[in-house]
Design a protein around this nucleic acid. Sequence first.
DNA 1: TTGTGCTGCTTTTTT
DNA 2: AGCAGCACAA
Length: 764
Amino acid sequence: MQNYLQELNEAQQEAVKFIDGPSLIIAGAGSGKTRVLTYKIVHLIQTGFNPNSILALTFTNKAAREMQERMKTLVDVDSVRKLWMGTFHSIFAKILRKESSVLGFPSTFSIYDADDSKKEINEIVKELKLDPAQYPANQVFGRISMAKNNLILPPSYETNIDIQKQDMVAKQPENAKIYKMYYQRCRRAGAMDFDDLLLNTNILFRDFPEIAEKYQKLFKFILVDEYQDTNYSQYLIIKKLSAFHRKICVVGDDSQSIYSFRGAKIENILNFKNDFSEYELFKLEQNYRSTQHIVNAANSLIEKNKNRIPKIVFTDNEAGSKIQIKELPSDRKESYFVAKNIVKTKRENEYSFFDFAILYRTNAQSRVFEDALRKSSIPYKIFGSISFYQRSEIKDIVAYLRLLINKRDDQAVKRIINYPRRGIGNTTIQKIVDVANSNNLNVWDVLIQIEKLNKLLNNRAITTVRSFVSLIELLTKEAQELDAIGLVNSVIEKTGIKKLMSEDRSPEGVGKFDNVQEFINAVQEFSEKDDENVTIENFLEEIALATDQDSDKENTDRVSLMTIHASKGLEYKNVYIVGVEEGLFPSFRSITSPKDIEEERRLFYVAITRSEKELYICHAKQRMKWGQYNTSSPSRFISEIDPKFVEFEIDEDYSEQMFDINQDYNKFALKNNSSSQLTPKIFVDKPKNLKSVDKHLKNGKKNLKDKDDNSGLAVGMKVNHAKFGDGEIIQIEGDDPNTKALVDFAGVGQKNLLLKFAKLTIIE
DNA sequence: TTGTGCTGCTTTTTT
DNA sequence: AGCAGCACAA
């Protein structure tokens, strides 16, 4: 069983074999980092460590899954299952579920995703009568996230001078107040957002030393992947947990630190020696992935960064071809070029589509490529766009499940109280929410005693709310009795979601229905796991922390499209880095800060090192942004690569003959014209609803009670309307609840008004 | 209460 | 260009 070591080079072997204390492994791009980590865990198990005492933290679910798969070929499946292996968020969510009671959270606490969080923030901003434009949920959430990742709770946020200064500069002096309320609301809802999972773990370990000790002793060996991307909150957890055994191995590459925007501290890797002075350092510098030209080009670029750990990544691979720098006239042509080039390269080298990746800086860039690939009949898959579970039709169902498990989940109730439409409108909801907030109650608490609001709400509203409550109570009961699949089926059945969706025959509607089917399949698959943890709670947790990368089950041959961030850890034979232009890459937001530019440079470094054989770097001279063409110049990063390793290419024929940018322009201009200018506004001057009038007549509903007295109105009368001013009645028709009057208003034209809504006063 | 048409925002990257 | 949220009309 020693042979696994022979598959490693000397440096890798040393790193794997050292298990006596803390170690730091600096792993250059393509140096076999995952392999080392995997084998190290295997080695630990072989040396006698109980898998249950090994904690391995990864950055993504995917990384964890990949390692697990690899390990299953090396050790028995049962050992792999017993490992504590997963993302920070999923591992500590699990621990928090066990221990949450001491923190005042139910073990069934909900996990708010970014959507829920932003909605909550928006509601608070409105409640505080602040201007939503001045307090964009995105920004405020970013501030709160930053605070939490640095363990700054609302009281400290309020008194922290630096933070207050920043908020003043940003013209958001009330952020502290919003944070405070947000914090309370989440607590009230029994909900944690992503950052809370880490923050609360810290609080747990800080305030309950006996619990901390339990886990400190449990985890005899701790491994952390992508250490350069950990934030302060994560760092503290790791430090605390490893304090007892001090057997910790962190793996990372400072050159690939690309997540500082969400609080990652590259310093964590640089400061490892401060906390673990007895540590051993291992450097993996041999690249097994790429050609010499690619490795050298990447090295020459990253050397421009000041803040880095010195290391020399080298390779014994072939020299390979030079990196191609390609200039294109427009973003559209960039996409056609890539499509054509993929076809050509594939044919010449007998590659599969799997061997190609298109990498971009922002998700928005994917659209044109989708277009070009589809037109060229190239199969493709976009990674990391919207996660399957983020789709609104799925989130609706998930909201029901969340509510069944945690009645305090206010975001979930608000989402589904009127979905499917059951006649609880915004006015009613707002009143209920107001009552909840002013009494510091959960929305659900108010709903179950809705009768008490008989002064505030009309009887109809109270009745509908009551039937909603009994629906939820019924489903809650079922949640105890049925298995996961049965429950989900019952939910979509009894709520009417199934009926509603099956009636929608539009292509989007059908697509949504398919997604719901797919969701049910996912539940099925989950419940078939031969695991003791197949509860609906665990399923919800898994999907709350799932990203899109998760759902790549199909293995049809196709080209991969993704952001560079999403590409970290992956490799492809042929890579196209597109949109390498100033303002886009590096992003215009980073251009004023040298520190941010360094991060963008590392990001570019990551992009380059994804490639094994061929690398194209493309930039377009014109790019469509927000519906308008802008001129852009090549990124500074292109000229930072040592020219020895690149070749420039401007294909004149290609750009002149095949495309004409003005054609694109004209097309858009034409489209805009036809929709907004050529279509004249038509005023309604004929009663549209003749059909419904007919129906009522047939049904003989003519002389039902006359509550709203419209009898004073007649054709020819002069009336006044609050908005439209004075006018003359041309026509009256329809029976009572739907009586309509056609009125000719001076200057406005003719309007067909429904009398039960329109307030007309008679002038003469 | 519900549906529609308009405004205004978006684009950094994600657990 | 595309979309969500929102005001307003029905």
